[in-house]
Nucleic acid binder design. Structure first.
Length: 428
RNA sequence: GUGGGUGUAGCUCAGUUGGUUAGAGCGUCUGGUUGUGGCCCAGAAGGUCGACGGUUCAAAUCCGUUCACUCACCCCA
């Protein structure tokens, strides 16, 4: 039996890899534009980091983590998300001492042990940002506007920004008890999931899709009417900034996220071309996490984009119009017509590449026609032809593959004037 | 973890009520007069029919088991 990639993991082959490169390089451009610096954290961390930050009772921690014991019996987990590691690094290196505000971005693989489906894998990729050391509503709005601008810069339309506020710690706690009181009487008519959620994460009952539960949820006291003044003001400021930036959004009072650390603003960006896993990105504010993890009491906000899902959308776009194309074309392809000349050609190839000419050489001894076919397949702009005939006449032939013409390039002792040749190739 | 769908050539897929040597298109390779690509034409290579077991004179086809892929639930990016 041949060895295959693990379930939920996959190889990214060309030409698909060009789409990934494009998505990532465009992200780096946008992050630079908005003043973010890259922060790379390890893929493995102490298990505690995630169980404490994301929440012991969340789905991610309770059933989806890649956790194992290392050779000394320590519990190690492959990161299921990047916010906790970034916060850990922020605290570990006391970055809050350098400046009041830190703006970071990250790009890399994350791991969750789930059943794979459209747009969901066990090793998946995220790019995202975190702004640490701020409670200012502007930074909530900037996170959203950055994500939206990034998608637009890739030519993606049809995105929907969904936004909500879960309020600060005080509001969350208060609303939680209001909800418990409300649902307590109806538990026996609600689904098993809702019954466990009632104990572990009451907020998420609002998100249930079972029809019978929905009926009951409809009459639940809405989240946004139970925010305290500070939370309400913060949320309104965020919305006002989005309005100023002309970023469209939908307020989703039932939007709840499955990570415990969120406070105040939470948001999600969805796209209609995706399957049932339609969230292209999401994020929110976490004002208490840094303090809970042993840092100063200071706020932060961030978002993450699922690159796998983004690539799905981009692929569907390129199927219609080819905005993003593969780019492995050659400037020059050197034929191999006579073994005695091969080392000369290899030497020439080497110096052409040192002059930034994209070039390659045929190493197979096959027919002229077959070598020309290879040159054509490699999408070479020019083909360099030299067999014994040309060698005897002290020339190379340079064939233009677009119009089919050939010209002679003079050689002395089978050396060309490399600068002239480079210039000639660049002209086209 | 639960449920549905699908496994035949490198890729996309045909394959009759079980019946000779399992096919097509695309791709690959080689030719179409001495050393010239694309287009066209010809030919070739390439398969343990996902794996294992069963029924049968005979299985890609029927049955069982298993694995993988895929979609959905849960949840998330």
């Amino acid at each position: 039996m041949t060895i295959t990639a693990l379930r939920g993991t996959y190889d990214i082959l060309p030409p698909q890899s060009y789409i990934w490169e494009k998505a990532e390089s465009q992200a780096r451009k946008m992050f630079a534009l908005y003043g973010y610096s890259e922060l790379r954290t390890p893929i493995i961390e102490q298990t505690q980091l995630f169980s404490r930050s994301i929440g012991e009772n969340t789905d991610i921690v309770s059933k989806e983590m890649y956790t194992f014991a290392d050779r000394k019996g320590r519990s190690i987990t492959m990161r299921p998300e990047a916010t906790a590691p970034v916060v850990r690094a922020y605290i570990e290196h006391k970055l809050y001492k350098d400046q009041s505000l830190c703006k970071f971005y990250y790009i890399g693989p994350m791991f969750r042990y789930e059943r794979p489906q459209a747009g969901r894998n066990r090793q998946f990729y995220q790019l995202g940002t975190e702004i640490l050391g701020t409670e200012h509503p502007y930074h909530d709005a900037e996170s959203i506007s950055l994500a939206v601008s990034y998608f637009k810069s890739l030519g993606i339309d049809n995105i929907v920004v969904k936004i909500n506020s879960v309020g600060d710690a005080e509001s969350k706690q208060k609303y939680n008890s209001i909800l418990k009181n409300f649902f307590a009487g109806s538990l026996d008519t609600m689904c098993p999931d809702c019954n466990t959620r009632f104990e572990k994460n009451t907020l998420r009952m609002l998100d249930c899709k079972v029809p019978a539960c929905k009926e009951i949820i409809k009459n639940a006291p809405p989240l946004n009417e139970n925010l305290n003044d500070a939370s309400k003001t913060h949320f309104e400021s965020v919305l006002a900034l989005l309005d100023k930036m002309k970023i469209a959004y939908e307020i989703e009072p039932r939007l709840v996220r499955g990570l415990d650390y969120y406070t105040n603003t939470i948001f999600e960006i969805t796209h209609s071309h995706l399957g049932s896993q339609d969230a292209l990105g999401g994020g929110g504010r976490y004002n208490n996490l840094i303090a809970e993890m042993g840092g100063p009491q200071t706020g932060a906000v961030g978002f993450a984009v699922g690159i796998d899902r983004l690539v799905i959308v981009l692929e569907k776009m390129t199927a219609n119009n080819s905005t993003i194309t593969a780019g492995s074309d050659l400037d020059l392809y050197i034929l191999n017509l006579d073994n005695a000349l091969f080392t000369d050609h290899a030497e020439l190839l080497h110096s052409l590449r040192q002059h930034d000419i994209r070039a390659d050489i045929c190493t197979e001894q096959k027919s002229f026609k077959a070598q020309m076919r290879s040159a054509n397949k490699a999408n070479a702009r020019f083909v360099l032809i030299q067999g014994q005939n040309e060698r005897d006449n002290n020339i190379f032939k340079l064939k233009d593959m677009i119009n089919g013409t050939e010209e002679d390039i003079k050689t002395i002792n089978n050396n060309v004037d490399i600068d002239k040749l480079v210039e000639r190739i660049r002209q086209s």
